[in-house]
Design a protein around this nucleic acid. Structure first.
Lengths: 165, 165
DNA sequence: TATTGTTATACTCTATAACTATA
DNA sequence: TATAGTTATAGAGTATAACAATA
């Protein structure tokens, strides 16, 4: 050991323990706080949905196809803010695993229509049952009214095509 | 061209135009909305701060070192939610570019103390002047009261060591 | 010629293992 | 033995370019 010091053992360093850092500037930085919040939600997601093999990306893909059967990959990509080639790679895996199927549009034979298979519908149905408890766990520090406010503010912040709920 | 149709030209597909998709489930999903919001802030950041060569990561690093001179890499990493090896790589670049300097702690010669050089201090000072207009631009759809509410809710959501403002 | 989907590929970000030096 | 920092490296996520089929 070294000479006696005023901070308790377990702190990182006498001069700059983590708990004594000045973080006020970052706490007032919305972009930084949004990043931390998103990391929290994604880490929690992997824990909660790991058993189903769902990732945040595949969860969102399943939900959009479920609610919009026949949606083309291009719409799905722009909606989820994924580049089309990156989405295609995921769709290839989901199709070869039997969760979705592709078919060619009769009206425009370039276009692809995406559908859930029964297997895919089953997975997202099971995932949907985990969604509420998961969201409640992540949002636990906020009251129900505050949770609604947060969601509303996020919706208003984003330039969505369709109007928010 | 094909036979007449009811939707206007320019829409993606007669059956599933983007603007007619049902997105309500995702809009009620906080993790998804947080991801979109964070993407918006990061894309806006790169546009606004590109001239200074700042990224969201280096901006945050500069701010924490500025407000906490001597902070060790390990504290910085856990604070910014970066893995230490990944932070070290960034610190190496920042040091060899002359923005920060490392020195060994006298009390514990394993520990490194990070400081801004005058060059680094100048960059973050210039960056700080862009911060308010940038945040206002990103948060424009919200009133000032709503902006404060959003920031407050995000702070309350996160298990911060130091108390929020 | 323009659009949809696809492949190939490169680049950034993130994660893990192992090493050095100091304690 | 444990800790702080560092290196090397692998993996995931994201980006652009180019091509095939269809309009």
């Amino acid at each position: 050991m070294m000479s006696p010091r005023l901070v308790r053992p377990g702190t990182k360093s006498a001069s700059q323990a983590e708990s004594s850092l000045d973080l006020r500037a970052l706490q007032r930085t919305p972009g930084f706080m949004l990043r931390l919040a998103q990391l929290k939600f994604f880490e929690g997601f992997y824990e909660e949905f790991a058993a189903l093999g769902l990732t945040p990306a595949t969860y969102a893909i399943f939900v959009v196809i479920r609610d919009n059967p026949g949606v083309p990959p291009s719409s799905l990509a722009s909606l989820l803010r994924l580049r089309l080639p990156n989405l295609i790679k995921i769709l290839n895996e989901l199709e070869s695993s039997g969760f979705i199927k592709r078919s060619r549009s009769k009206a425009d034979r370039r276009a692809v229509e995406l559908m859930l298979t029964p297997k895919g519908a089953k997975v997202i149905a099971e995932g949907a049952r985990l969604t509420e408890p998961y969201n409640q766990k992540m949002l636990a520090p906020l009251s129900e009214a505050e949770q609604r406010t947060l969601l509303d503010l996020l919706n208003r912040l984003l330039p969505f095509e369709g109007k928010a709920s």
